[in-house]
């Protein structure tokens, strides 16, 4: 079953217990960064009268995992997008490709790693909830099956239509995310990216990449054919010259029938 979390920004009181729980769970150092960073996987932002927690969205079709040249980032069936630091070469394409600008880098280290929330996958895989959800005192962060959480979100919207926007952020954005958000005001007003497409981003590059084998085969054959035709014509022409020079002596034709047929593969 695909897991997820429902974050209800109308309930969050900004106590930052999730930040602390995350720091302990991942043994991160204390740090005062203004945004997510290599030492902060989740952060609560004050947006007007609401608090919004930011972390990896764990997309259903993650751009980061699709662009990683060595497959260091991987989407688990259970939901988490995880990272194998032994594979990573540090090209940072994941950071560039992420529509939410989530992955961070250990810029100050000589041998840096990509850092981001891993959805406490060690706990999720054995059916426990992530550290942040376990510590949340108000239930603003709720862990569960993504389908159940979607149903719950819809229920809340239907039950108190005045309190919620009719929009579950993460239901459809970039093909859907494991993290789902509810809000009382339009999401752009509380710092969410707007204008995200609903199509999973990896499809954009795959549309080109999937055609490459055809391109290689057709292109190679075409160029091979062109080379054959033109070179054979040149070979014949040269022969004519030779022949003409030698006064029409037929024996002076090319010594090698095969090379005449194919044109010359090698050149001088």
């Amino acid at each position: 079953m695909r897991k997820g979390m429902l974050i209800d920004t109308t309930i969050c009181v900004g106590c930052q217990a999730c930040e602390e729980a995350c720091r302990e769970k991942n043994s991160l150092p204390e740090c005062n960064q203004s945004d997510l960073s290599a030492c902060k996987f989740t952060k609560v932002f004050e947006r007007g009268e609401y608090y919004v927690r930011k972390m990896c969205m764990h997309c259903l079709e993650p751009a980061c995992a699709s662009v990683c040249p060595v497959g260091a980032l991987r989407k688990l069936e259970e939901g988490p997008v995880v990272y194998d630091e032994d594979k990573c070469i540090g090209c940072r394409y994941c950071m560039q490709a992420c529509p939410f600008q989530i992955p961070t880098y250990e810029w100050s280290k000589a041998l840096p790693r990509v850092r981001k929330c891993w959805f406490c996958y060690d706990r999720v895989l054995v059916g426990e909830q992530p550290a942040c959800a376990a510590e949340c005192p108000t239930g603003a962060t709720l862990f569960g099956n993504r389908e159940d959480l979607l149903a719950e979100a819809r229920r809340r919207i239907v039950e108190s239509p005045d309190q919620y926007q009719k929009h579950i952020f993460g239901e459809r954005e970039v093909g859907g995310t494991s993290m789902l958000y509810l809000a009382a005001v339009p999401f752009e007003q509380i710092g969410f990216k707007s204008g995200l497409i609903e199509k999973p981003l990896p499809l954009l590059t795959w549309a080109v990449l999937s055609k490459l084998p055809d391109f290689v085969l057709v292109g190679g054959t075409l160029l091979g054919g062109v080379a054959w035709i033109i070179n054979r014509r040149m070979t014949l022409e040269e022969e004519r010259i030779q022949q003409a020079k030698l006064g029409g002596n037929r024996d002076a034709k090319s010594r090698n029938t095969l090379s005449r047929l194919l044109g010359r593969l090698g050149k001088d």
């Binding site: 699709s66 990683c68 040249p69 060595v70 497959g71 594979k87 070469i89 394409y93 590059t205 080109v208």
Partner: peptide, 12 residues
């Protein structure tokens, strides 16, 4: 690494 760790979905 890309020699032995493949991800054909990646442009990189």
């Amino acid at each position: 690494h890309p020699l032995i760790m493949w991800n054909p979905h990646s442009v990189m």
